[in-house]
Structure formats: structure tokens, C-alpha cells
Design a protein around this nucleic acid. Structure first.
Length: 443
DNA sequence: GGTACGATACTGCCACATCG
DNA sequence: CGATGTGGCAGTATCGTACC
């Protein structure tokens, strides 16, 4: 398929032929990089690629495509890439086989996909199949034995190798007849044969250097949508709970932020941050017998509501409005620290007569948390510290989160105020209390 | 069944980008 | 420009597996 002429291309380059094609990945490995042992290929090129390839990444891509863990990765890499990349004896270059971990895990996906790679080719022809030049389909032809044929991969070195690796591994199960044609975007003679690859370099820079990740919270919101099935681990369950807390249940509905799309209330925890804190709490919920998504969401919503009530800083915020600028109770740092107290919250409810999820449990937690905040010296008058007081106590900046969390934990089981203690004393007490709670819960 | 090793997860800290 | 959210790094703990 011929790629239509771009109105943005500089005039000097409008003649460049540019097409989309599907290429057999096993063949592509012969055209590029070729092997060091085939005389008319360039052995330096092969070695350079071999040296710069991050083989762990190649294996990760293959595992992703297969949606399966790869075992004995170094042996498998050796088996399938030796003929391509192994240097001749006494040849200089990187050692072969590459050193990579034995087992390669994969990122789960409902639909493992493979975006097109960018290739540059000298020595090939494109012949349009219809009269109208520059549009529609064409035939790409070249002599694969020709010395003038030169393939290079502008972008997707790792994906090409990963695709080849995945195909070889798949052939172990499905037989040698399996083939795969990967999508490729091909630039023909963008840089003249033998000339420095200046345009290829530019494309590489544009694609790889200026790339920017989208915000974590933006995809945190998409994960449950993409999955369309129940959560199968704590990470996924945390995503589901976070989404409910953002949209349906509890005091944070409509307030949790998704940076980048201007969703939520400023100074309130962002979705990704909240999710990772929830993830930590899930094992505790499970061992307390709080197992369903609805129960877990409800309990966490109650805990968060109890926390906000206890701080005396719970606010109702309408769309477009903002929190009291002195209110830090909703902040990521603060909520994450509080959520680390979930085991203690569970213990508190369990040792009372209250039922999880009941109004009684909520008022019980509110009262207890109020005492904790008080004992930790975090109460000023009837309210949780203001922003400036919070900062003055050293809870911001490096190490601040740990200090804050320790204050909460140290106060959790204390009888009297621990506010006057030093950092180390609080930290020690925090650890001791965490241990006590863990023991109490394991009984 | 015990041990050693490798892989992974976790933690605290820091760097950096973004945003108001 | 400071506050905040997030990623990266290094050190450490824990888990899982291969091997004896």
C-alpha cells in the first residue's frame, strides 16, 4: 500500500517512496540484519546490532506476544539467534550468548498487539498496480540475493527480534509451518545507498526520544475497561476498587484526580497513587474475610470516611470547586499513610462487637482515629493540622511520608500522647505496633 | 527435605516534570 | 517557585525453583 504524499514533507523529499507492507518475519531476519557469515552482508552491522540489543527486552516482547512465561531464556536465545548473531571464533564483539535472566515474565494483555516497524530500504522497487501514481496499492520487489539490497530497521529492532523469537517458540508447539507477517512501514531510498543515514536518524530521534508517556492515572482508569473480566490479582482488584471509589462509593466520589485530563479536585489523591495504596491493603482485607469487590470497596470507603470525619476536615466539594487550601487530609501522602493503618482498622472492628460495613463500625473507627490523631499530636484545636503546620512538622519532602506514617502507627496503640517523642522513638514504636497488630490478626 | 541461588517485590530516598 | 505526583535506583527481603 502506497502511503499518500504528505503535505508536510519538505519539497526535496516529496519524491521519496513510502509504503506499508506485511513482511514475513523469518525472511526479514535474513534481509536484516543478515548474518556475519554471508559474504555480501555487512558483518559490522550485525555485530553492532548484536552489541546494542537489550536481549532481556527482546525476550519480554516475545513473552508478551506469546502471553506466556519463557523459561531457559539464554538457551533459547542461543538456539534461535546463534546463526544470526554468533561471532566467528576469535572475532571481537560482545560475548555470545547474551547474559539474561532464566525466566522471562510478561505483561498481560487481552489482545497482544504489534505495531508496525519502520524500515529503510535501498535497492528495491515499488510498482503501482494502477494508473494513478502515488496512491493505492503497489508491488514491492527486490532481488534478495543482490548486493545492492540494503535493509535497515529505523525503529523496532527489539520488536523484530522479539517477533522472530516468539515465532520460533510458537513453532515448537504448533510446528514449523507457522509463519507471521508483521506490519512494516517502509521508506525507500530516503537516504541514498552508501550515504549517511541522516533522515533515518531523524526519524529514530522523533519516534524514540520525543516520545512521552501518558499519565499513570489515565491508564489506571482504563485498566478495568480494557480487562472486561474479573480481577485476577491484587493489582487488578485494587484498580477495580479505586475506580469505584472514584465514581460510585464513599466520600471521594468525583474528587479523586486523574492528572492530565483535569478530572477531580485539586489537592486530592490521584487515582494511581490511591490504587497502589489499596493494593497494599488487599491482603489484609482478604485475611479478615472481606473478599468480594463490593465488601472491600465498602469497607475502605468507610475507613476513609472515618478518617476524614476524624480529621474534622471532611468537605463536600461540588464540581469545579476546590478544597479549603489549608486542608491536607485528602492529599496523596496523607491518605496513603492512613491506608497503611488498614490492618489496625480491621483489628479495631474485629475486637469490638461491630459488624464490618455497619454504621456502628464507622463511628467506632471515627472515634478511634480521632484519638490516634490526637495522640500523634496532629490535632490543632478541633481540626487536623493545616498545610503550613503539616510542613513545619517535617511531613513534606524527602522522608516526610515515612515520618508521618510512623507518627500514626506509633499513636495507634499508645495510651498517651507520643507527640513529644523523637523520630527514632516513633519509628521503633510504629514497628512494634505493626507487629502487635499482625500477631493479633493472625490469631 | 534442606540448601543455594536467582528472580522478584518491596522500601526509602531522590530526581524530575508538571501545575497552579 | 514551591507543592505534588511519579519514576528510577540501590539496597534488602522474600519467594520460588533447581539441585543435591
Amino acid at each position: 500500500m502506497i502511503v499518500p504524499e504528505s503535505p508536510f514533507a519538505p519539497e526535496s523529499l516529496t519524491q521519496v517512496k513510502h509504503c506499508l507492507a506485511a513482511l514475513d518475519v523469518a525472511k526479514l531476519m535474513e534481509w536484516w540484519p543478515g548474518t556475519p557469515h554471508v559474504p555480501h552482508r555487512n558483518p559490522d552491522k550485525v555485530r553492532a546490532i548484536q552489541r546494542s540489543l537489550d536481549w532481556k527486552r527482546v525476550a519480554k516482547i516475545a513473552a508478551y506476544l506469546l502471553q506466556q512465561e519463557i523459561r531457559d531464556t539464554p538457551e533459547k536465545l542461543d538456539q534461535y539467534f546463534r546463526s544470526v548473531y554468533e561471532p566467528r571464533k576469535f572475532e571481537k564483539g560482545r560475548e555470545w550468548p547474551p547474559k539474561v535472566p532464566n525466566v522471562t515474565g510478561y505483561e498481560r494483555s487481552q489482545y497482544p498487539m504489534f505495531s508496525n516497524v519502520l524500515l529503510h530500504v535501498n535497492g528495491a522497487n515499488v510498482t503501482p498496480t494502477n494508473k494513478q501514481r502515488g496512491t493505492g496499492t503497489a508491488n514491492l520487489s527486490f532481488n534478495e540475493k543482490s548486493r545492492d539490497l540494503n535493509f535497515s530497521v529505523i525503529d523496532g529492532q527489539h520488536r523484530v527480534n522479539g517477533a522472530f523469537f516468539a515465532l520460533q517458540l510458537l513453532r515448537e508447539v504448533r510446528g514449523k509451518t507457522v509463519t507471521w507477517e508483521i506490519p512494516a512501514e517502509i521508506f525507500l531510498d530516503l537516504d541514498a545507498a552508501g550515504a549517511p543515514p541522516k533522515h533515518q536518524a531523524q526519524i529514530f530521534i522523533d519516534v524514540n526520544f520525543y516520545q512521552k508517556k501518558v499519565d499513570r492515572s489515565l491508564v489506571a482508569d482504563l485498566f478495568p475497561t480494557a480487562r472486561s473480566r474479573d480481577a485476577i490479582d491484587d493489582i487488578e482488584r485494587a484498580q477495580d476498587i479505586g475506580r469505584r471509589l472514584m465514581l460510585e462509593t464513599g466520600p471521594l466520589v468525583g474528587m479523586i484526580q486523574i492528572p492530565g485530563i483535569n478530572f477531580g479536585t485539586p489537592d486530592v489523591v490521584s487515582l494511581a497513587t490511591l490504587n497502589s495504596a489499596i493494593e497494599d491493603a488487599i491482603p489484609h482485607l482478604l485475611s479478615a474475610g472481606i473478599t468480594s469487590l463490593a465488601e472491600q470497596t465498602e469497607f475502605l470507603a468507610i475507613c476513609i470516611e472515618a478518617w476524614l470525619d476524624a480529621t474534622g476536615r471532611k468537605e463536600h466539594v461540588d464540581d469545579g470547586e476546590s478544597l479549603d487550601p489549608d486542608n491536607v487530609a485528602y492529599q496523596g501522602r496523607v491518605l496513603v499513610s492512613f491506608l497503611s493503618l488498614i490492618p489496625a482498622c480491621i483489628w479495631k472492628v474485629q475486637t469490638s462487637e461491630a459488624i464490618f460495613g455497619s454504621a456502628q463500625s464507622k463511628s467506632l473507627l471515627t472515634k478511634w482515629l480521632r484519638d490516634v490523631i490526637n495522640r500523634a499530636g496532629l490535632l490543632h484545636g478541633s481540626q487536623f493540622l493545616s498545610k503550613s503546620q503539616f510542613k513545619a512538622k517535617g511531613y513534606l519532602g524527602s522522608g516526610g511520608l515515612a515520618r508521618f506514617r510512623d507518627s500514626l502507627w506509633a499513636a495507634s496503640l499508645a495510651r498517651n500522647s507520643i507527640a513529644k517523642r523523637g523520630d527514632e522513638s516513633k519509628a521503633a514504636l510504629a514497628i512494634a505496633n505493626q507487629k502487635k497488630i499482625a500477631e493479633a490478626l493472625s490469631r
